[in-house]
Write a protein that binds this DNA or RNA. Structure first.
Lengths: 222, 222
DNA sequence: GTCTATATCCCGATAGAC
DNA sequence: GTCTATCGGGATATAGAC
């Protein structure tokens, strides 16, 4: 059960990163002290400075670790569901409509980072790199999906990925402010329009079916 | 040229509000001290506490003043342009694509407030009220527009307004991270899809025409 | 590498003169 | 209502023992 020095060092680093991501998302970057992060990780602030040099260093490391996660890639394991519209619904349920889950927490962190990027070029660069890579992946998945579904999206894969991501982001923000104004059916309608699918048939139950929780398991890499 | 006491009081209040909105948008709410706001307004921190009681009070007052502004109402004076697609382009140019303008600054403040709302119920309530009212107005404009254009949007006016707002918000965020990935044509395609318009014809010049600056004058009430 | 202790700074808010 | 002065708290970062 004993650890080598290298193991302990690695574990400390991992715990600091995890605690940083958690707390930054929960309370905001400025709302969290270095001491708080260290304490949550079972260490003291000295460990943070030994590993990352500064609070900013810790932040960039958190961003980098997060960048490697595949969590936000769209259409990851959507193919489980049956109907085309059901698949779009699954996208919304997994990306934009899962309170009290990892993705919910991570999206708060994403906004926290986005906002900081508006004033900090270092963070902006890191976020841009992540954005490009993420869009590439989701463009690939989207074009594959569109071809199997025989639909004609409103733009080429790369632009389509941007539109889809933008719509989901905007809807998720709106849901946070005013949950009643956003439901799954609404998201599906918007996504379907971008995918070039014919008008959604289920017009009758638009108000009645919130279409909640069609959860597909996320893989959250450590 | 002399002022009554009441005039001076009103002017101080107005200057504090303006300075607060500016600085909060520029540096973030947590990045601005009460002293800094007061100094920018040509007063001292005591004036802030006399008028608003606390920094939070100032923030709520800023939000309230902003709520009264009609700046973010969609389709305000869009009817100037000629073609239907040109009008959608004007929407994007005025809402999501105007760096170094008031709307750009205000959208940063909106995000600042949104993020704070995620952790502060008081701010969340104020923001929700603003959201409802804003959507009501834009739903009205959108339905009017859709009927004159004889198009069939993908949802009823209220939901359509939510979708449009969400798409514009998401695109504007993406533009901040990675300007090259978002242009006017892309926004128009997305908006047109939501409005139920037939596929955009101008497919050839999609990559070549950034379609910049179709500025329509904003009315920014004091 | 990690901890304890501390230096240094800045912020929000209050007290009291005018 | 506004200013000056200040209190109390908490933040980042560093120094030095282990």
């Amino acid at each position: 059960m004993a650890q080598t020095q290298g193991e302990r060092k690695a574990e400390t680093r991992a715990r600091l990163l995890a605690a940083g991501a958690d707390l930054f998302a929960d309370r905001g970057i400025d709302g969290v002290s270095v001491d708080a992060v260290a304490e949550a990780a079972g260490r003291t602030s000295g460990a943070v400075y030994a590993h990352f040099g500064s609070k900013q260093g810790l932040l960039l490391a958190v961003l980098d670790a997060w960048k490697q996660s595949v969590l936000t890639v769209l259409f990851a394991e959507v193919a489980i569901t049956d109907s085309p519209l059901g698949q779009l619904a699954a996208v919304w349920d997994n990306i934009g409509n899962n309170p009290d889950t990892d993705s919910d927490r991570w999206s708060l962190l994403e906004h926290e980072l986005w906002q900081r990027a508006a004033r900090d070029p270092e963070v902006a660069d890191a976020l841009r790199a992540r954005s490009i890579e993420s869009r590439g992946r989701s463009a690939h998945e989207l074009s594959r999906w569109a071809s199997t579904m025989s639909v004609q999206p409103v733009a080429d894969p790369d632009d389509l990925a941007t539109l889809v991501k933008a719509l989901l982001t905007g809807l998720e923000m709106q849901r946070r402010i005013e949950p009643a104004s956003v439901n799954c059916d609404l998201a599906v309608r918007g996504l379907a329009a971008l995918m070039g699918m014919s008008p959604v048939p289920g017009d009758s139950d638009r108000t009645t079916s919130p279409r909640q929780r069609n959860t597909v398991t996320h893989d959250t890499p450590a």
